[in-house]
């Protein structure tokens, strides 16, 4: 069966490594924080200016001055720090943040990503996404394999305005884990019960399928 959002977040959490500083985007990526393995210490950065983000506050303890990049009220863990936006993006551009997880509308087999604009329809702006994808060493995209009309979002080339070029190395969808290299998607794992045939059918970009594709263990 295809994964739900929580399943995707759980699978991405398996990519975390002890001691990493991690930036999580809005949506599914935010959920990854809930599934950090217990023995592991990971610090979450939010680009509006906080390192050491903690869980949401208890009701009645919300602080308007303490939010994440999704404008949600948050708390901080012991050892947290606050800083200005220039310092925040120095951390990102300077590659001090080890992993970025973000959502996408489209990803191409060359690692291009589009997630900020639908011409004539939706223009929200790129926020920090362009800075993040241009600089992060590890970028994992959390997304759905197809759009609501059933069309694949895993493409030979993006059709929407780009956020970055040649930057995405890994994609986790409700169906599969894909690695991007040498101009192709490589099928690494499939969601429990999902067939290789279904993944092939829903992937528009070039897909390399090995003889054996293991199921994800969640």
């Amino acid at each position: 069966m295809a994964l739900d959002k929580i399943g995707i977040a759980k699978r991405i959490a398996q990519e975390l490594q002890d001691g990493w500083y991690v930036n999580l985007g809005i949506g599914i990526p935010t959920l990854v924080a809930n599934y950090v393995p217990e023995e592991m210490t990971v610090e979450f950065q939010s680009e509006n200016g906080v390192l050491g983000m903690g869980p949401f506050p208890f009701e009645g303890e919300e602080d308007a001055d303490l939010i994440n990049a999704g404008k949600q009220t948050i708390t901080v863990n012991p050892g947290a720090s606050f800083f200005d936006s220039a310092t925040s993006f120095a951390m990102i551009r300077g590659q001090h943040v080890q992993l970025t997880v973000l959502g996408a509308m489209e990803v191409s087999q060359y690692g291009d990503i589009a997630n900020w604009k639908i011409p004539g329809k939706m223009v929200k702006g790129m926020g920090g996404a362009m800075d993040l994808v241009a600089s992060a060493e590890n970028i994992i995209v959390a997304m759905m394999h197809s759009n609501k009309a059933g069309e694949s979002k895993i493409l030979p080339a993006c059709t929407l305005p780009l956020t970055g070029v040649g930057c995405v190395k890994k994609v986790v969808t409700e169906l599969a884990v894909l690695e991007i290299k040498n101009g192709a998607f490589h099928l690494i794992e499939r969601a429990p019960g999902v067939t290789v045939e279904e993944i092939i059918a829903k992937t528009a970009g070039k897909l390399i399928v090995p003889e054996f594709v293991p199921e994800m263990v969640l």
Partner: peptide, 24 residues
């Protein structure tokens, strides 16, 4: 891009007329 916006303001205040960034 947000990081470019922040740095462009910082540069403006710091007497740096322009800078190179990979963002965008």
């Amino acid at each position: 891009p947000q990081g470019s916006l922040a740095e462009r303001c910082r540069a403006g205040g710091a007497g740096i007329p322009a800078f190179f960034t990979p963002a965008g």
